[in-house]
């Protein structure tokens, strides 16, 4: 049955708190996360100490943002499909093998699996910090300040405004089907689900037309007026924010120079 979603999808993401990270402009935060994750991805998996430092840094960021770890933990589940892939790496990996208990596993595969899991987990945690400290309105504003083409900004703006409406509509349609005795068990239910999704598309499209005409009627010409008047970010804020990716980058550079294990 339609699962996974509470009715207010995007509001589950944002954790309203007072913190310095919440106060940072969204475009600064996006750049901070991007820079930090690039550093993480460029770190060789054999430098285990570097990853331990990364986890400490991420934990500190969570503390600074006043976000409890239990908010982050459930959202790590998005990596699950790749965890399966990672677990296969040591089994099917090439090169010299090491025996772990009763089985022999590929050494390179084990390192690759560890690297994959560590990097993906850190990436998800940093994305969660971004999402839980940034309201969707600020997020759209941030994309605009990053000079994303205006068409994409306005598409994103419409998307974050209407995602809850359309997802709720889908839940209402599901409930209506169930009320009529429908049960989605296997592929035999697909024609019905396909028709429902077709209807959902038409409803979403027609809603888009109505919303769009209503916006034009109120003077919309391709830009939301309130998004334009934002003060420039002071240099001190930029420097404070930059300290985060710089920390990650320093660790990454050291890890690449010293190498792993022995280093």
């Amino acid at each position: 049955m339609p699962t996974t979603t509470s009715s207010v999808l995007t509001e589950r993401l944002y954790v309203s708190r007072e913190s310095r990270i919440h106060g940072l402009p969204a475009h600064v935060k996006i750049l901070v996360v991007l820079g930090s994750v690039v550093a993480i991805v460029a770190t060789p998996p054999t430098a285990v100490w570097a990853f331990l430092l990364y986890f400490v840094l991420v934990r500190l960021l969570l503390l600074a943002a006043h976000i409890p770890f239990r908010t982050v933990a459930p959202r790590l589940l998005v990596e699950l499909p790749f965890v399966v892939f990672a677990l296969l790496l040591p089994v099917f990996g090439t090169g010299p093998r090491v025996s772990v208990g009763p089985v022999t596993l590929s050494e390179a595969g084990l390192w690759a699996a560890w690297g994959l899991l560590a990097k993906a987990t850190l990436g998800v945690m940093l994305s969660v910090i971004l999402a839980s400290t940034t309201s969707t309105a600020d997020f759209v504003n941030g994309l605009q300040r990053l000079r994303l083409p205006e068409v994409l900004v306005q598409m994103t703006a419409a998307m974050v405004r209407y995602v809850n409406v359309v997802v709720d509509e889908w839940h209402r349609m599901s409930r209506a089907r169930e009320a009529r005795g429908f049960e989605a068990r296997g592929p035999r239910a697909w024609p019905m689900l396909g028709r429902s999704l077709g209807a959902l598309f038409i409803r979403a499209y027609e809603r888009g037309e109505r919303v769009h005409l209503a916006m034009l009627a109120r003077g919309y010409s391709g830009r939301m007026p309130e998004l334009d008047s934002r003060a420039t970010v002071p240099l001190a804020t930029w420097l404070a924010a930059a300290s985060v990716p710089v920390c990650f980058a320093v660790v990454a550079v050291l890890a690449n120079m010293l190498g792993g294990l022995g280093g």
Partner: peptide, 11 residues
Amino acid sequence: TAPLAGLVAVF
């Protein structure tokens, strides 16, 4: 016209 395309993205 982007808001209309945005609703298709939502779908």
